[in-house]
């Protein structure tokens, strides 16, 4: 269970370029479900995802994970939590150029101290599951958009997280590739993981993946809880 209580995030506070990305958001996200944050560009979806996943701290308010206040955790505990509990799929894939697919997938496990063989075996299995079996040694800059996004998903799964946070996962993909990625995300949800997706791509809402849509505008939640189109119909 993820709870947000009066969460606000202001950047560059006190300076001329101060702006509030998220304002007074109260939200309850149930485990094991797929939730979408929907809204135009600049509505605060990405910042809210970052706040939920412990990538940044709220300027005010609380974020709780299973009843535990994570907004007050020290950097070390927050990082550990982020590594163990959340898997991130970023909008621009955010793979490290020059490293191989396998090295990129293994990255989140590097500081965990897990045995190398075990991590490597899991990474190869994940790549196999995502249809990238023969691409393990390829440098990431040579991948197509669909392949890069699948590598990013494999990387998000390397530490077997309970929650997957995906920021605009179909933003740079054509319709066919988008459907492929959405099918993978649906599989993850079917495995019992909590899925939180930010998007304004109609394909995401038409795919039947999302069980709950949270509309956002100007940093505020304006319609929480409306089911997505196909589920509604």
């Amino acid at each position: 269970m993820i709870e947000l209580l009066a969460v606000s995030k202001t950047y560059n506070a006190g300076r001329v370029n101060e702006f509030s990305a998220v304002r007074e958001v109260d939200l309850l996200i149930e485990p094991g479900r797929a939730t979408a944050l929907r809204g135009p560009s600049g509505s605060g979806k990405t910042t809210l995802l970052g706040l939920i996943g412990g990538l940044t701290r709220p300027s005010s308010g609380r974020v709780r994970l299973d009843g535990r206040d994570i907004s007050a955790l020290s950097e070390r505990f927050l990082t550990e939590l982020r590594r163990a509990t959340f898997g991130f799929v970023f909008q621009q894939f955010q793979l490290i150029r020059g490293l191989s697919v396998l090295e990129n997938v293994m990255l989140p496990a590097t500081p965990s101290g897990r045995p190398y063989r075990e991590v490597r075996a899991r990474a190869l299995r994940l790549l196999d599951d995502l249809g990238l079996a023969g691409r393990a040694e390829v440098k990431t800059q040579w991948l197509s958009g669909g392949e890069a996004q699948r590598v990013a998903i494999a990387r998000a799964l390397i530490n077997d997280p309970k929650v997957i946070l995906a920021d605009e996962p179909t933003a740079h993909l054509d319709s066919a590739l988008s459907r492929q990625i959405l099918a993978i995300l649906a599989d993850l949800r079917a495995q019992g993981r909590t899925l939180i997706v930010s998007s304004h791509d109609p394909l995401v809402f038409e795919a039947g993946l999302v069980e709950r849509v949270i509309d956002m505008r100007d940093g505020r939640v304006c319609g929480a809880g409306a089911p997505a189109g196909p589920v509604l119909s």
């Binding site: 550990e80 982020r82 955010q94 989140p108 530490n159």
Partner: peptide, 15 residues
Amino acid sequence: REIGILKAVGWETGD
């Protein structure tokens, strides 16, 4: 950007 990625995927500042 790469340091940001490492931190986002679970690396501590110390790592």
